[in-house]
Amino acid sequence: MIAGLAVAALLWEGYKAAGDPEGTVLFGVRVLPRADDLSMPHLWTIGRRLADPEMTGGRPVWLVVLQACLFTLGITAAGFAAGTVIGLVLAAAMQRFRIVERGLLPYVVLSQTVPLVALAPLIAGWGGTLMPPWATVSVIAAYLAFFPVAVGMLRGLQSPSAGGVELMRSYAAGWWRTLVKLRFPAALPYLFPALRLAGAAAVVGAVVGEISTGTRGGIGRLIIEYSREATSDPAKVYTAMLGAALLGLLVAGAVSLLELPLMRHRRHVEVATL
């Protein structure tokens, strides 16, 4: 991991040293990026920028970025939680009623293939009337997060063998008890990879959502704001990128923590949601 980071840093600085400051243009198309300080600031410039104040006399950038991260983390968490609950309920409904599965599943799968996150600017209209503006971003995050959960969980709930189901039937266990005692535990190995996908999707949803709804205070918004200042203060936007990466890591780490106690001694299965 550390070696990988070191290689990436070397490549960055190496290209900066070797690459054409104006980028390489082939047939009128710039195929290699500019290597000047404006486009690719030195890594240490970015590091120093983190410590400097955002504006003269303001708070240091790292604090601003961290706060933005936490703000977006809250939005992501709300969206992730809502999306997961909806996904789980939907999966259980699809497992229980074959007709629901037949009618809905094609749409659930289809919705993964189409850029529904494109709806983000339209949901922005809900802010201020139906709900507070930050909640619209959560809606987008939830929207992206629920699909993997619904599909993965449905697979998991359907994973017990016919033998296991018949055994529960011989114990005269009803649908609910079969769900709790057999299907849900069997679904866990399918659920967690789906949750990891949902976590990543919720982050993307929150970042994109903040940008298209114009919600202030989050990391997505910060990226846009800082990138507008790129000509005068090129290192700043990179600090926001670092924040976005941190957010992704935080969410992925949190989901893994959720998984640890439940998945010890359990087999792992491959889950593809499409």
């Binding site: 991991m1 990988g4 980028g23 710039r30 990026p33 500019r34 404006l38 486009s39 690719m40 990891r196 976590g199 990543a200 982050v203 993307v204 970042v207 994109v208 997505g220 990226i223 846009i224 990138s227 790129a230 090129p234 936007v237 990179y238 990128m241 976005a244 990466a245 957010l247 992704g248 890591l249 969410v251 992925a252």
Partner: peptide
Amino acid sequence: PFAAVLNALPIIALAPILNNMF
């Protein structure tokens, strides 16, 4: 592991940086 971690990041947010670089 490196790719798995990177995959969890909001890669799409690279867009403004790339806009600056090109």
